[in-house]
């Protein structure tokens, strides 16, 4: 199996690569969709702001390619947010693979932001394959100031004044708002669940 990491130009790509190395999974870094043609699944990483990341995806043709994509896809952090329709961060139109909108967490309450640190997972769809081997209340590492409210596709939520989507899945399109590559054993298991999804 090979995983293609979509090159969003963001800084956490090396962390995702090393996490896959620790799991013993071969990976390539794909600037263009054609470079990922031999891969079995895709990871869309991301930190930073929505607009430059979307522009980078569009200029490489990833926006059209991902809409037509059938291989399992995992968005991480900003990468998860880009799977939705729009982001309030700069008023950006995103990929629209999942219904819903990314909102500023400050819009919900005046909590301490960014939401940074280890928070608990609350299961919304407890039997989802993404949660295999994970316990309700396990901690994962978050760093973000924007979030997606809980939707029908929310597999697990977390709470920081507001409750928001921590993990989402619609068919083979998955996302984690937290950083599984930096979430210890729990994160490694979730990455592994993605790697085994549908296999």
């Amino acid at each position: 199996m090979t995983v293609a990491i979509i090159h969003t130009g963001c800084a956490n790509i090396f962390s995702v690569e090393t996490a896959l190395d620790r799991l013993g999974v071969p990976h390539i870094l794909a600037e263009q969709p054609a470079e990922a043609s031999g891969a079995d699944r895709l990871i869309l990483p991301g930190v930073g702001a929505a607009r430059p990341a979307m522009e980078k995806l569009q200029s490489a043709g990833w926006d059209a390619a991902l809409v037509a994509e059938t291989r399992p896809l995992l968005g991480i952090c900003l990468g998860m947010q880009l799977l939705f329709e729009t982001s309030e961060e700069g008023g950006v139109e995103c990929l629209g693979l999942l219904p819903g909108h990314v909102m500023a967490m400050a819009a919900f309450d005046g909590g301490r932001l960014p939401h940074m640190g280890w928070n608990r997972l609350h299961f919304e769809i407890a039997d989802d394959p993404m949660l295999a081997g994970i316990d309700e209340g396990d901690h994962v590492y978050f760093v973000h100031g924007y979030a997606v409210p809980v939707t029908n596709h929310t597999v697990a939520s977390s709470a920081h004044d507001m409750r928001f989507s921590a993990m989402v899945r619609r068919g083979s399109v998955m996302g984690c708002q937290f950083h599984p590559e930096r979430s210890g054993k729990t994160g490694a298991r979730i990455l592994n669940n993605f790697l085994e999804f549908g296999a």
């Binding site: 090396f14 962390s15 090393t18 996490a19 190395d21 620790r22 590492y141 760093v143 950083h179 590559e181 930096r182 979430s183 210890g184 054993k185 994160g187 490694a188």
Partner: peptide
């Protein structure tokens, strides 16, 4: 920094 990033799975 790279050596540390490879070795650990926490931020």
């Amino acid at each position: 920094v790279k050596r540390v990033a490879r070795a650990i799975d926490i931020p």
